[in-house]
Design a protein around this nucleic acid. Structure first.
Length: 245
DNA sequence: TCGTACGTATA
DNA sequence: TTTTCTGCGC
DNA sequence: TATACGTTCTAGCGCAGAAAA
């Protein structure tokens, strides 16, 4: 069976990366499937060159609010079906989940809420986490195999961020957020990056305020999870840290 | 994130 | 019509 | 008093929408 390359990228504005080097990157990297988060665009606001890209079909899950959140999946493989959201209105209106059914597996492109803004948003994030776990487990009970990728907005363990002690009380590394990842994994999912890389020092997000990227003071908050039945089918998992979003 | 200022706790 | 400003979220 | 510790503050980008040019 041939190898499929799936890439996840929080672009922080699809129109902004389009003006930079998005197209060159895409034509060079040529993933079979590309999962984008934080597109910050309605379906009809996507650059036409992306929306009508030769060889790819583009699926959207945009937020109601303009310029906010939103995920999209570009696919060279034809899925059997697609679905936006979990069927829960308070979560689905923020454009955070897009599901493609490829028969052998479901691909869930997901952008979990950021909890840094306020207690209300942290609570919303935790509710989203719980709702998603229930949703995923329901799919598992239906016999589905899952690939879950995207921006989880939480570093799992101390080796997943450069400053664990300093951030023990910061959303993104709170005990309850980390505990949810533990609970999720314990229900039969694999953090694929950790299948191949055991040591720390590998990050996917860096604070802009202090130009932390230059010094590699970062967090690993973007993941590829698979349901454990797919584990032996995963060939590799890595972070392209030199690509700027 | 980092360094700092400031308040509070501890000996 | 284009540029500049303010506000929001991250 | 002297020291330790915990809390606080805080940039710049991408976008929307209104105002100004």
């Amino acid at each position: 069976m041939e190898t499929i390359k799936i890439v996840s990228w929080n672009v922080n504005g699809v129109r902004a990366v389009y003006k930079k080097n998005f197209m060159q990157w895409l034509l060079t990297d040529q993933p079979h499937v590309l999962c984008l988060q934080e597109t910050k665009a309605q379906d009809d606001q996507f650059p036409a060159e992306i929306a009508q890209l030769d060889g790819y079909t583009v699926y959207f899950a945009s937020a109601q609010r303009k310029g906010y959140s939103g995920v999209a999946t570009l696919s060279r493989l034809k899925p059997k079906s697609s679905q936006v959201g979990m069927g829960i209105e308070k979560f689905d209106t923020e454009g955070r989940l897009l599901q493609l059914d490829y028969g052998g597996f479901l691909l869930l492109n997901i952008y979990f809420p950021n909890g840094k803004q306020s207690n209300e948003r942290l609570q919303y994030k935790m509710e989203f986490y719980d709702a998603f776990l229930k949703y995923a487990q329901n799919l598992r009970r239906q016999g589905k195999s899952l690939i879950v990728c995207g921006d989880v907005n939480t570093a799992h363990r101390e080796i997943d961020l450069a400053r664990p002690r300093e951030n023990a009380k910061t959303s993104g590394f709170l005990p309850e957020e980390r505990a949810w990842i533990n609970r999720f994994l314990s229900q039969g999912y694999i953090d694929t990056f950790r299948m191949f890389t055991k040591e720390g020092g590998h990050y996917s997000w860096w604070d802009q305020r202090t130009r932390a990227r230059e010094r590699d003071i970062g967090w690993r908050i973007d993941y590829f999870f698979v349901s454990e039945d797919l584990a032996d089918k995963v060939k590799s998992a890595f972070i392209q840290k030199d690509i700027m979003g």
